[in-house]
Simulated scan of single mutants.
Amino acid sequence: MCLKRGRTLLQYAISPAVWLGVWQLASMAVGMDLLLPSPMAVAASLWKLAGTPQFWLSALFTLGRVCQGVLGGVALGSALALLTHFTVWGERIFAPAIRVMRATPVVSFILLVYLWVDRATIPAVVAGLMVLPILWGNLTVGLESVDRQLLELARAYRFGRWKTLRLIYLPSLRTHFASGLLNAFGLAWKSGVAAEVICPPALAIGSRIQQAKVALETPELFAWTLVIVALSLGLEGILRRVVHPREERGQ
């Protein structure tokens, strides 16, 4: 058992070790921390940042904004998927608008939302707008692929709308919802941080990235980037365990 765990840890450690080595060699070849800081310089900067309350508050506020946007996007995307599937007028009114939303670049959303809402609210709104069309698309596909024989059986047994939704539609939509949420969360996280960089609030990771760029603090810029990546991977891992608990146990 210990030998197996050791091999597993070694397999996971090989890739980071190789890329850290490449990073170190590239930094030595460049010879300027302003252009490409070494891993040790970035680690020192990260350690220094972690000792300040602003670091934790910035990470917490960014996380809160993105989660607010994700929850809003999930709620609206789910409601619109049901509306466009079960009503003709919902399909005609909302489906074209959602498709346009899906084709619009993130930067355009950020700049447009900046005209309408408070700066601190922009990341949450942008994150929600990124989640909505993805979840709507996945749930729409799921609703269209529900087994017709099960629906006929529900009609034969005179199931009500709520009972049909609970016993037939929701189990069929579980996989589509989970995959859509996982895909949407990564995009929401990146777009939320991008919105903070372009329209920096008072306390946010994006604001600190913007400040580091203006001050030419490249090690700090890399340190905040590592924080973004670490939080994204950690949150996606937690979310994956929540939406796919059986698969995680099987592994």
Rank of each mutant, 00 (worst) to 15 (best):
L3S: 13
R5F: 00
R7H: 05
T8N: 12
Q11F: 00
I14V: 15
L20I: 12
G31K: 02
G31M: 07
L35R: 01
S38Q: 02
A43F: 09
A44M: 11
F55H: 05
F55L: 01
L57R: 11
L57S: 02
G64E: 01
V66D: 01
C67T: 14
C67I: 15
Q68W: 14
G73C: 06
L82E: 11
L83S: 03
F94C: 12
P96F: 04
A97S: 13
V106Q: 08
L111G: 05
L112A: 08
W116P: 04
T121C: 01
T121P: 00
I122L: 05
P123V: 09
L135N: 09
S145D: 11
V146M: 09
V146N: 05
D147Q: 05
R155Y: 00
I168D: 10
I168K: 04
Y169M: 06
T175M: 08
T175G: 05
S179V: 12
F185R: 04
W189E: 08
K190D: 10
V193G: 03
E196L: 07
L203S: 09
A204G: 10
A204D: 00
I209Y: 04
Q210A: 14
L221C: 08
F222R: 02
A223H: 11
T225Y: 08
G234S: 09
G237H: 08
P245W: 04
G250L: 09
